[in-house]
Simulated scan of single mutants.
Amino acid sequence: MTGEPRIPCGHAALPASANSHAAFAHGADKAALRAMLKAARRALDPLQKAQRDAAIAARVLAWWQGHMAGGAASLLGVYWPLRGEPDLHPVYAELAGAGVRLALPLVLAPDTALAFVEWVPGEDMLSDRMGVAVPAVQRVLDRPPVLLVPCLGFTAERYRLGYGGGYYDRTLEALPRPYTVGIAYAGDQVVFAGAQHDVALDVVMTEGGINEG
């Protein structure tokens, strides 16, 4: 929940850990990294995925209760899992039950920032123009002060690799920037050279731990 600019990314990120999918891929282009990470997610055993999702959900809940509960951040931007992303629905329900207002991203048009709509777990949903689930009754909100941001990949310096649409990049351009919590699997850590305009996430949470600046 800070409006201060994050670290600009003008150089290659630090090497990935030895157990990441792309520890060997220093200098690889982003398209190759995306293809590799997508294939790895498709190959993930469903039971292992469920266990990892539960571990991430527990970490997110503990972090929220320790850092955000009772503060000014009563609105949290979350995401609906796609393409094998970590499924955090159980923690969404628990947070909503504790009085936290939740918001889902909404794509209004190509090459634009995301809008956000209020979401109550269990309400009727429909698919937006991108095929993503959104509430059937759309109650538009201001951009939440804290966002859970799904990552296809991430670097040791918390730079995010997404799917290439740039929606989150455009969403984070306007100041004050929200506090960003990247959500990924530990093996999704990669190495790539970032662009000058790239913004580091504040935190990345995986089943294995928390990478926080």
Rank of each mutant, 00 (worst) to 15 (best):
A31K: 13
A93D: 12
L33S: 09
R34M: 08
Q51E: 15
A136W: 06
D53C: 07
H89N: 03
A103G: 09
L106D: 04
Y79K: 02
A62H: 09
A72C: 11
G122K: 11
A69S: 12
K38C: 02
M36D: 00
A96H: 15
W80H: 12
P121V: 02
A72E: 14
A57M: 00
L76I: 10
V91Y: 08
G71W: 11
A115H: 12
R41L: 01
E94D: 13
L114S: 03
E123D: 07
A133L: 15
P90W: 00
A39L: 11
D29I: 02
L44A: 06
D29E: 14
H67S: 13
V132K: 06
A72F: 05
A72N: 13
D124E: 13
V78Y: 03
W64D: 03
A109Y: 04
G71V: 07
R129G: 11
A43K: 13
R41S: 00
G122T: 06
P110Y: 08
L114Q: 11
Y92V: 00
A35I: 00
G84F: 00
D128H: 03
A136M: 12
L33N: 01
L44M: 14
V134P: 04
A43W: 00
A31W: 06
Q51K: 04
L126Y: 02
A115Q: 14
L95S: 04
L44N: 03
Q51W: 02
A35L: 13
M68A: 11
L88R: 01
R101W: 06
H89C: 03
A115W: 11
A43P: 02
G66K: 11
F116T: 01
A103P: 05
A39C: 02
H89I: 00
L47N: 10
Q65P: 03
V91N: 05
A109M: 11
L95F: 04
L106A: 08
W64C: 05
P121R: 09
L108H: 14
R129L: 09
D124H: 10
V117R: 13
A43E: 14
V107E: 09
D45S: 07
T112K: 15
A58Y: 01
G122I: 01
P121I: 03
S127C: 10
I56F: 04
S127V: 05
I56L: 10
D124Y: 07
R129W: 09
V91T: 14
V100M: 04
A73M: 11
L102F: 03
A32N: 04
A50R: 14
I56H: 01
A39M: 12
T112E: 15
